[in-house]
Design a protein around this nucleic acid. Structure first.
Lengths: 198, 198
DNA sequence: CCGATTTTGAACCGATCTATCCAAAACTCT
DNA sequence: AGAGTTTTGGATAGATCGGTTCAAAATCGG
């Protein structure tokens, strides 16, 4: 056929994702993306239609891996509902402290995009909306199971509790970017659980 | 002396603030700022040192007005501690739904800046840190008073509860930008209060 | 009413932005 | 090996970026 690629598209996507993650959509220049991926402009524009397209693919990759990991915890039927939520929040704490060696880290690309780009970027907003729906659905199911197994005592509607937990995660991520340390995040997680279990 | 200004610096600052608020720091161009304020480039650069300086002043103005309003609620000694927190969360719900006629609104400039710019903009990060300290301090005091007046039952440390409430507010703001409607925000606020009162 | 001083608008600066173009290189298939 | 196809790097385009310069306009004190 023809000359084959000398790079791995998945790897390039990962590198691009990290760049958008660290710098934000606007602040990440095509040159930054070239440097990060090790590709030339032509290769990038040949593989991806535009910076926007590359961003959307990177965002999709990020959301999918992140939410898949969260759903795996929420669907672990060997633990009580409350325990799964607890484990989920612990993972978020781990995430936020891991992505931060020394200074403050890049936070969560989903939250960042919701705040920075969801207003103008229709496509990204749609992806985020689908992701939120997926997360809320899993959270609601887990909470309903927690109600049944007795680990979740709150009489609030499961969907409302699900939105609450999702908001709490976003709040923890913003707090982390605002300088909250691990202990602070852990205590926020504990109190979030109080609202469900007590 | 000399020719006087034909514009009101405060009004210009407000217009600039709104622009940064709606578009974000990076995405707001100097042309956008000229259009929004109605000023020429020269007037802007004569009055403010740079885009960065203008942004910092706009951010300071925003944080101060926002946090002053929040502190007024938290320091209203005619209400119980829990009631003050409830009123604060209600104000946030009001804010988020008011800033959003039809589509989704610009959210909160404080949260936006924490997510978008706090990593690179040292000055902005310091302003946000001071603001957070101020907010947490007032929240902690209110929570301590709520413990004394019996409206707040949680045995968690007041400072931890303060961080939790602050994170909940950020979470509500991100949720709002992610498309949550008024009813959703109200239920998140209610459940946030559950964690304190029960 | 005039000199001093400041504001103002418009032109302009170099840098950088996203994106395209093009010719050389690299590969497959016949 | 040659024809055909794709990748690749570098040059380049056109727009826009933040910021400066400058002369005209406007206002003051005297």
């Amino acid at each position: 056929m023809a000359r084959p690629r000398t790079f791995d598209e998945e790897r390039a996507l990962d590198a691009a994702m990290r760049t958008f993650w660290e710098k934000g959509y606007e602040a990440a220049s095509t040159q930054d993306l070239c440097d990060a991926t090790g590709l030339g402009r032509s290769s990038i524009y040949n593989t991806f239609k535009s910076k926007q397209d590359l961003f959307e693919r990177a965002l999709g990759r990020y959301l999918d891996s992140m939410t898949t990991a969260h759903l795996a915890i929420l669907e672990d039927s060997t633990r009580s509902g409350a325990d799964r939520i607890r484990a989920l929040l612990a993972l978020v704490v781990e995430d936020e402290t891991a992505n931060r060696t020394g200074g403050r880290g890049p936070g969560c690309l989903g939250v960042n995009t919701t705040v920075e780009a969801a207003a103008h970027e229709t496509r990204a907003a749609e992806m985020l909306e689908r992701d939120t729906t997926r997360r809320l659905s899993a959270l609601r199911t887990t909470i309903e199971e927690g109600r049944r197994d007795g680990s979740i005592a709150s009489a609030r509607q499961p969907i409302a509790l699900a939105r609450f937990v999702n908001a709490a995660i976003a709040g923890m991520r913003v707090s982390s970017q605002g300088g909250a340390d691990r202990a602070a995040l852990e205590s926020i997680a504990e109190i979030t659980l109080d609202a469900l279990t007590r």
